[in-house]
Amino acid sequence: MPSETPQAEVGPTGCPHRSGPHSAKGSLEKGSPEDKEAKEPLWIRPDAPSRCTWQLGRPASESPHHHTAPAKSPKILPDILKKIGDTPMVRINKIGKKFGLKCELLAKCEFFNAGGSVKDRISLRMIEDAERDGTLKPGDTIIEPTSGNTGIGLALAAAVRGYRCIIVMPEKMSSEKVDVLRALGAEIVRTPTNARFDSPESHVGVAWRLKNEIPNSHILDQYRNASNPLAHYDTTADEILQQCDGKLDMLVASVGTGGTITGIARKLKEKCPGCRIIGVDPEGSILAEPEELNQTEQTTYEVEGIGYDFIPTVLDRTVVDKWFKSNDEEAFTFARMLIAQEGLLCGGSAGSTVAVAVKAAQELQEGQRCVVILPDSVRNYMTKFLSDRWMLQKGFLKEEDLTEKKPWWWHLRVQELGLSAPLTVLPTITCGHTIEILREKGFDQAPVVDEAGVILGMVTLGNMLSSLLAGKVQPSDQVGKVIYKQFKQIRLTDTLGRLSHILEMDHFALVV
């Protein structure tokens, strides 16, 4: 994948999101292997301009796509893939009243899908469409860049269908997702969380590099694949309309690839034109409109599966009536509230959605109805927002919020430890010299600072030695090549209790 991002070429006709291997024109390309080798690009942008032909009021008969309808489940399912879809609609009884809503608040519980998330729908649909058009064949390999849930859905379907599955996901995604993927037989590649989507090191860039190296491999490409919004247009939206008897006044959905909100909203605009569509985008993402909503100094966020630093091709923002931004604290607070007060075992993005819903639905009156999409299960986040310690460490809970008995030293300040200034190293000294210094002084790690004293990161003896043994660096290389740029900081005025929580999850903390 090139470091400079080429513009994806656009073909003359058809839909841009065809499933299957992508040609340089962004659509299915038939021909000899030699032709494909000559024409197939190194990668295709996940934010390529959409060429979708959908228009409100256009006859369904003019759609270029294969459409399906929700099917009634048999008493005995032939395999677990038949437990994807037909998820329950559940009334939220307490939270709406707590925040003064007059309307009825309903939750579409997508964590009841077989793999635990709304992404099971698009995973199965992308595979079925690729099999139907002859792209996927027995023994082929599926590769997908994902925040985890699409990966789980694909790995689940691949396990049943017999495909090899490789999932490329950023490091910030939970260990629970990784464990589930491994249990399903998927191979996992992790990428830096802070890598831009168009960087060769991003999950998108690495996935395309693997595709170019592995024979008979395919990126189904949830960011561009029409099967993504079509899955929701054909099934999720129809289920909502049936469950609500066609009567709903507002739908609120958090947005990642945009397939969920695009597919549902398009069908609702056709069948229930008075329904307002509300999009939820986390602070630090750029999906919301108008652009002024996205202006923030924050560039990272903890909530998973929603928000991006690019506009995915499948996201149709014209069908969203209003956007709201959400933050991590309210997302996790509301997710825990949904679990504790409503018994809905949902993930953090569901918290984002409901946090926005109780604001947006203030305009609705008694007798009206708001539906929220709860995308995934708490299963993926047992060591994250479900953990009091994690919430404390991230600053989303305060010590006084917890009532468990603490040891005698818990409320003492870090400054009472009488710490001395640490050994520091410059980023320009060599790895070999740094190892000598650390061994001589008896230290395992040291902060790396520039000549102005600005902290650049941390270097550890173990990481340097393993990097040297693996051949990633040489003793003569500058130590700046092996620094940890993500590390926890703590102030002298913070409590030892807070430091204790940090050290339970990290090997060190830097006192500043």
Rank of each mutant, 00 (worst) to 15 (best):
E34S: 04
L77A: 06
I84T: 11
G205Q: 15
V10F: 11
R196P: 11
N212A: 01
D79F: 15
T257V: 03
S174P: 05
I76L: 11
W54M: 08
P12V: 09
I261F: 06
E131V: 09
N93R: 04
A186W: 01
R266K: 11
N216V: 03
I240W: 01
I240R: 01
S50N: 10
L56F: 14
P41T: 11
S61F: 08
L42S: 03
K97S: 14
S61Q: 14
H203W: 06
A195F: 01
P145I: 04
A48L: 05
G185I: 01
A130Q: 01
P88H: 11
T235N: 09
A159D: 05
I143T: 09
G57L: 01
T87I: 10
G100L: 04
K83V: 06
Q7N: 15
R196I: 09
A38I: 01
E128C: 07
T135L: 15
I44T: 09
N228P: 01
E187Y: 05
D79G: 09
S63V: 07
G139R: 11
H232R: 05
T5D: 03
P170D: 03
D238R: 15
P273A: 06
Q242V: 09
K97D: 13
K97P: 06
C109L: 04
K36G: 01
M89P: 01
D238Q: 01
V90D: 06
D79V: 14
L28N: 15
T260S: 08
P21T: 10
I44R: 14
L181F: 06
T135P: 04
N194V: 01
E176F: 01
G263V: 04
V204L: 01
R182S: 08
D129W: 11
S175A: 11
P273T: 04
L248G: 01
G148Y: 01
K98M: 13
N194R: 01
T262E: 04
I92T: 10
E128F: 10
V180G: 01
G11R: 14
D221Y: 13
K137N: 14
T235R: 01
P49V: 10
S217D: 01
G14R: 06
A38Q: 01
A231T: 15
T191H: 01
D245L: 04
V180N: 01
N228M: 05
V255W: 01
K39Y: 01
T235C: 12
L106N: 15
P138M: 05
K177Y: 01
A207F: 01
K75T: 04
I264D: 01
H232F: 05
L241K: 05
K102R: 14
H203A: 11
R91N: 12
W43S: 06
S217A: 01
D133F: 01
G151M: 01
I122A: 05
A107V: 13
K269P: 01
D35I: 15
K25I: 15
T236N: 14
K36V: 06
K247F: 01
G100P: 01
L251Y: 07
D35W: 01
L56D: 14
R132L: 07
I80V: 14
D221F: 09
P138A: 01
L56R: 12
A24G: 15
V180C: 15
P16F: 01
W43K: 01
S63I: 12
T260Y: 01
K267M: 10
D221N: 08
A157P: 11
P64A: 13
K269W: 06
V180A: 13
G31Y: 06
K211Y: 06
I76Q: 04
S175L: 07
I214C: 06
P64F: 12
G14L: 14
W54L: 06
V90L: 04
P12L: 01
R164F: 05
K102N: 12
E176S: 09
P12C: 04
A207G: 03
R164H: 13
L136V: 07
E104A: 09
A253G: 09
G96L: 05
N228D: 01
S3V: 14
F99Y: 15
T262P: 03
L241V: 11
A71I: 13
E144P: 01
I166T: 15
L81Y: 01
I122C: 03
K98F: 07
